[in-house]
Write a protein that binds this DNA or RNA. Structure first.
Lengths: 236, 236
DNA sequence: GACCCAGGTGTACGGCGTACACCTGGGGCT
DNA sequence: AGCCCCAGGTGTACGCCGTACACCTGGGTC
């Protein structure tokens, strides 16, 4: 009684709403799909419409959630070569966003980037420029990195084997897609002594592999004084 | 009267449902977000529940739509080096999927890959293997390519300038994110004589740039007899 | 004491996916 | 001929969603 009805506890504000929404999405299996204004309101001990005094709409709520988590990315480590600095900053972003698996999908679904995302992108471009890359090359590098700038893995589907439920179905799959089967088999062997014992792929390794291929390629272009106009001309 | 009530026109089947759904999503601005079972039923002159005699659920409908469009990707061109062949197949996928802008998001939202997607992936792995790449390297190459295998651009947001509505806001943006502003400015200049006159970025160029960086990097690793176990050891 | 207004409430609307019971008409059996 | 079956379309209903709009309420300002 002391709190539940008495003092009309701290009157709710934007930050508390966003924090509760992030916590909810982190906890629930469905992430933001499981999040509804009604459930969030219930969690805060308030009626659904009360939320609209603090966020304009569900979309704005999602944008706020994104900004909250992206804002938590570490500032760039000073010093080091540009490649190492970019690598560190991206891996740092990845560390943060992996704690919020719903974030990639939400970020991509927003109609415009949030300020914190823009800030992150700006910082990465800054690292490229400080390393001597042309604005032109930095631009295309940013496009090439795409979602990886925030640590997203660009998988086409969830490659976890989820216990390979049924050897019958697995055999049928292998017969229809022999190359996939072969690759899956080697992957399973290769990782027996690696970090991912249970089968499936080592996300972190795959991410760093792709990131390094991209950064190395960009470095090579930089050293060769690549320009997009030259590349365009070469195509014709 | 001859048709509308008389002969109970062709009794609807899975293919017609899927085709209508694809056409609807292609036509409507919101893509599959604008698609509902009710609207699709209305379009087919039928009551919503009738659709459930042909698709098990909305999710299954979406999977069917994906399979319909992904199934339309050209078979791989024979001959040529593996890099060219992979490049061609991916650009072919891109050509198809660009006509269905809703497809990337739907494919990523499905809990499991559809058969046509698996077939496409299998074919690409086959090209790698035929070119002499190890199963190990092919595996990591597939992860690195990720969504690009189907021609997705992995943009963090829509970079089209949408008419830069307000120079005031633009200036403020430039002040807060100087590196982004600089890069955007160079991009705008660079493309004045290029394919994208109106500002914004040339999607196709960005896509091919990233694709070539990745494929060239993979080729280099192949020629250096790269193995993942070696790479893992090197990290420690 | 009068007023204001930030912030919480209650009700209602139109939309969604889909479970479930029902009808209906043509085709295959005996 | 008479029967039944059942694929395929129907109607109703449930519980969820986001949110518009009118309303109340209690502390703060003049």
């Amino acid at each position: 009684m002391s709190e539940s009805e008495g003092v009309r506890r701290t009157p709710l504000n934007r930050e508390r709403v966003l924090a509760a929404a992030v916590a909810f999405a982190d906890r629930e299996a469905g992430g933001t799909d499981a999040l509804s204004m009604r459930k969030l309101a219930q969690e805060l001990g308030v009626v659904p419409m009360a939320l609209y005094k603090h966020v304009a709409s569900k979309e704005e709520l999602l944008a706020g959630m994104v900004d909250t988590v992206v804002g938590g990315i570490d500032p760039p480590a000073a010093g080091a070569d540009w490649k190492g600095a970019v690598r560190e900053r991206i891996l740092s972003a990845r560390r943060v966003l992996r704690r919020h698996p719903w974030a990639p999908r939400v970020i991509e679904s927003l109609p415009a980037p949030t300020p914190a995302v823009l800030g992150h992108l700006d910082a990465v471009i800054g690292l490229f420029r400080a390393g001597g890359l042309s604005a032109d090359l930095a631009h295309h590098a940013m496009h090439a990195l795409g979602g990886r700038l925030l640590g997203f893995t660009q998988e086409l589907f969830d490659a976890s084997p989820e216990a390979a439920p049924d050897p019958r179905a697995a055999a049928q799959l292998a017969a229809r897609y022999p190359h996939i089967a072969e690759v899956a088999a080697t992957a399973a062997h290769a990782e027996e002594g690696g970090t991912a014992v249970g089968g499936g792929c080592d996300d972190q390794f795959e991410f760093e592999f792709a990131l390094d291929v991209l950064l190395d390629g960009i470095e090579r272009l930089h050293l060769a004084d690549w320009t997009s106009t030259g590349a365009r001309r070469a195509v014709r």
